[in-house]
Design a protein around this nucleic acid. Structure first.
Lengths: 100, 100
DNA sequence: AAGGGTGATAGCATCGCTGCTATGCCCTGG
DNA sequence: CCAGGGCATAGCAGCGATGCTATCACCCTT
């Protein structure tokens, strides 16, 4: 068999996955902004949201700072507190390609 | 001001956010399944995916086990390796409600 | 029967996120 | 001027996720 797996591996050796923490920052910043947006829309202060979520104001500030990549459990709790829904999806970008 | 914030807080005291790690398992299991699904569709073994991602087979197996809540950085790396895209969204479920 | 490939699991060290306290800064109202 | 609220930041302890090695059980092929 020895699929063309070797090719796949080679073609990516230096493209993307070799760089570990490249653009997590991007997602973190976007999520941070969305949280802040939602919170302000609800008219809540960081302290109030913190209490709803079950944490402290500084933790909320840190999240909204966008310098860390929040955990899914944390995002979920925030979402619930803000009457929002957290959606996490993995979509194949090659559905119609590798059909051999 | 003293918004109806007190009401909000009261109305949730024992509904959802008081329970910390309730259904993270659900999301973890779904993601685990999606990863496995994608990986097999690409015809990759856990070991091959591991190498693409830059980790080991046991780590992949653990993820696909669905007993932990993966970090976003990890999910992102997996997604890239599988030619997939990771989407994380916070959607307001009350857009047309609290117009005040 | 022996070997190879695949996937689970355990145990460990390390790292990052989280919760917390304690500040500091800015702004607004008294 | 002096609170007071709102937000940011630092520093620390604790915990969960990750990476790793080493097994183990299975299946399949030879």
């Amino acid at each position: 068999m020895t699929t063309n797996w070797t090719d796949i591996k080679a073609s990516r050796a230096d493209s993307d996955e070799r760089r570990h923490g490249y653009e997590h920052a991007g997602r973190a910043i976007r999520l941070a902004f969305e949280i802040k947006e939602l919170r302000e829309r609800k008219g809540l202060s960081q302290r109030q949201l913190a209490e709803l979520v079950g944490t402290t104001q500084s933790a909320i500030a840190r999240l909204e700072g966008g310098r860390i990549s929040p955990s899914l459990p944390t995002l979920d709790r925030i979402a619930n507190a803000l009457d929002a829904e957290l959606t996490v999806t993995l979509t194949d970008t090659q559905q119609l390609l590798g059909a051999r």
